[in-house]
Design a protein around this nucleic acid. Structure first.
Lengths: 232, 232
DNA sequence: ACCTGAACACCGTTCAAGT
DNA sequence: ACCTGAACACCGTTCAAGT
């Protein structure tokens, strides 16, 4: 029974299984993709990533992981690349303001799907070609929109900072935006308590704030562009 | 000689030194303030904070620190409070837009003095009364400016996210904003390379981007307010 | 080529023992 | 009350030994 060979079967990694040798090679346990899947799941569930927990989830040992990826930092960088790819390219037929808004929403949406990952990524730098290509596209969009070349990098920084800050907002607990005292009772922050009570909470608040800020930022950029055109 | 008592001397901690007992009590080595000073210096210099390095710098042992502060997280939270206090209150006689700009600039300036600290603080939540009082003041300012109560929390989130993202920008290396290929050579990101070459770099870029974004954001908020007033 | 356990250097924290 | 070294549980990483 144990010696029956299934002809032409293909395993999950897409590797042909025809190499039946007398001493059958043990099945490939790990792959870069399976490691990244497990790592992302771990971060989503617990908000942290340790090599030991990762190994347990993979049914493997921590040292085995190092045969596929050179360490914990590399895993995080690979996850960043994966998310960067998910943002995708922006439609070129849009005007700069619509295109920028589209890009920023996708940017944040992708990270919003994995809020716990964001704090783990802030320490590292972007080197992934896909992510850089996305910046290149936005650069072209802003230039076509009429922004001067020496200003484009500044605007890229601005929207990047806003998007990152908004993404981090998703990971942080909502404590600041929870009224510290019940209505009618004395509080050191009565106006804020009332304002918090009047607004939505949690994810809904974060989403609405992002949308409001995005609109204001783009409107401000448009005003800046118009003012420069009037002077020129 | 060793038995001479200096009358009424006061040590650095403001504790009277008159309790001369046969076996003179050893001088107080640590205090909350000295620990926080050393911790901030360590973060500024190395971008990280370990209890062992902190103890070495204090000429003490790691376990001693726990007699003054309940752990590493408490040290970071205390540093956050310290910086929060540095932001101070905003002048009430300003209009909402000028006041908001003043507050955001101070907010970022304070963190800009210690960029390495920012990534270490993003994980924790604000609980310090001084920081909360500062949010309360901004809330009052926006309400007086005419923003509806149920929108104030959203705008607070927006400017908070922008300020945090901009502060984190100071801590990250400038790699993304460095041209990947020399001028005239083929590059996957030619337009961005040219834009980066036309702009300033490092701290100067981060500062200019913050100023530009701040102006745009406030202008966008003003436009939003005016549009709502026209409809109402 | 891939996997493993043991070992390593390091981390934050606890605690009994000292003064 | 404050300080200390030793010990603890945990961390990422290395490596000789296996298949």
């Amino acid at each position: 029974m144990g010696s029956i060979t299934v002809k032409g079967s293909v395993d999950v990694n897409g590797v042909s299984d025809l190499d039946d040798v007398p001493k059958r090679r043990r099945r490939r346990l790990l792959s870069v993709d399976s490691i990244l899947d497990a790592a992302l799941a771990l971060v989503d569930e617990h908000g942290r990533l340790t090599m030991a927990e990762l190994a347990t989830r993979l049914g493997s040992s921590a040292s085995s992981i190092y045969h596929h990826l050179p360490g914990r930092d590399a895993i995080l960088e690979a996850l960043r690349e994966r998310l960067g790819r998910d943002i995708g390219t922006i439609p070129v037929e849009q005007t700069w303001d619509a295109g920028l808004a589209t890009w920023l929403r996708r940017y944040r949406d992708v990270f919003a799907a994995h809020p716990n990952l964001i704090p783990l990524l802030t320490g590292q730098t972007i080197t992934d070609p896909t992510v850089l290509a996305s910046y290149e596209a936005v650069t072209g969009m802003l230039l076509r929109g009429g922004f001067p070349e020496d200003e484009v990098v500044l605007w890229l920084s601005v929207v990047d900072n806003f998007a990152l800050g908004s993404a981090l907002d998703l990971a942080a607990p909502d404590e600041v935006w929870r009224p510290s005292a019940p209505a009618g009772q004395d509080s050191p922050t009565p106006r804020m308590d009332a304002a918090v009570r009047a607004a939505t909470r949690g994810r809904e608040r974060a989403d609405a704030a992002f949308e409001l800020g995005l609109t204001a930022l783009v409107a401000g950029m448009r005003a800046h562009l118009d003012a420069a055109a009037d002077n020129g």
